[in-house]
Amino acid sequence: MLYRVEGIVIRSMDYGEGNKIITLCTEGNGKIGVLVRGAKKVKSRHAAITQPFTLGEFAFYRPNHGLGTLNSGEIIESHFSLREDLFLAAYASYACELLDRTLQDEEVGSFWYTQLKACLESLASKKDPEVVIALYEMKILQAAGYGPVISNCVSCGRTADTYKISPRLGGSLCPSCGHHDPAAQKVSAGTYKLLHYFERMDMRRLGNVEVKDETKAELKRIMRDFMDIQLGLKLKSRSFLDQLDKYEI
């Protein structure tokens, strides 16, 4: 059967002497693997469309629910700027691997696709990558069913003037419920405000936000704790990103 889909290349790997297998995140067909014959050859007409982060239209033959074979492809947005910048490539790779490891094969949902698309567009438009990724992590947690409860107490449901954040329990704890998690963390007003906005914000609505370095550091720590405790994924791209962060000026 011939399929025609719009998708984003979230993974590209060599297969055999001259071929590649790409993994696409699509809006209506979930995550799909497609074999691209001859993609490694210098004069291949399909080489460009197999590059990571590429948004394109793909036509492929696919028997039942197995691996598809590319028939034709057209690039909508190459995102070349993400691949030529080492730091942006690291952030984009993390975004793609995070979705790839979280989204199950054949799981359909436009939310996954739209959030990744908006994340890559935000990175390409030079929005603060640390803020972009923190919001994207929040959206991934929500899509996976582990979205943090920030605006009210995750234990009793009440609102309060101050909260601690408990990644283990999945959100905010009011002063009356703080004893439920002695490891719950105090955060600055700026960090809590961002978490509060991120809980409700769509990636497509993110503007250019200026955030203090200390607030970004605290935000990163809190979101990493949520990701580690709730999803427990070991990602190569995150390890590489952390290494690069040590040398960023």
Rank of each mutant, 00 (worst) to 15 (best):
V5I: 14
V5Q: 04
G7M: 10
V9N: 05
V9K: 11
V9H: 06
I10S: 09
I10V: 14
I10C: 11
R11L: 08
S12H: 14
S12V: 10
M13Q: 06
M13F: 09
M13N: 12
M13H: 09
Y15S: 02
E17I: 05
E17C: 13
G18W: 05
I21E: 02
T23D: 08
L24T: 11
T26H: 03
T26A: 15
T26K: 06
E27I: 05
E27S: 04
G30C: 13
K31D: 08
G33C: 15
G33T: 14
V34D: 00
L35E: 01
L35T: 03
V36E: 00
R37W: 03
R37Y: 11
G38C: 06
G38V: 12
A39I: 08
A39E: 00
A39V: 09
A39R: 04
K40I: 02
K40M: 01
K40T: 00
K43C: 02
R45T: 06
H46F: 15
A48Y: 06
A48H: 11
T50A: 10
Q51E: 15
P52F: 00
P52L: 07
P52A: 09
T54C: 14
G56T: 11
E57Q: 15
E57R: 13
A59Q: 12
Y61T: 12
P63N: 12
N64Q: 02
H65R: 13
G66L: 05
G66S: 06
L67S: 05
L70D: 00
S72Y: 06
S72M: 11
G73I: 05
G73E: 07
G73P: 07
E74K: 11
S78E: 03
S78P: 01
S81I: 13
S81P: 08
E84R: 12
D85Y: 10
D85I: 13
D85V: 13
L86Y: 06
L86M: 06
L86V: 14
L88H: 02
A89R: 02
A89S: 14
A90P: 10
Y91H: 11
Y91K: 02
S93K: 04
Y94K: 05
Y94H: 03
A95P: 00
C96F: 08
C96S: 14
C96N: 07
E97C: 14
E97T: 13
L98Y: 07
L98Q: 01
Q104T: 09
D105C: 09
D105S: 12
E106P: 00
F111K: 13
W112T: 01
L116V: 15
L116F: 12
A124K: 15
S125I: 15
K126I: 03
D128R: 09
P129L: 04
P129M: 07
P129T: 04
P129V: 04
V131H: 08
V131C: 12
I133V: 08
Y136L: 10
E137M: 12
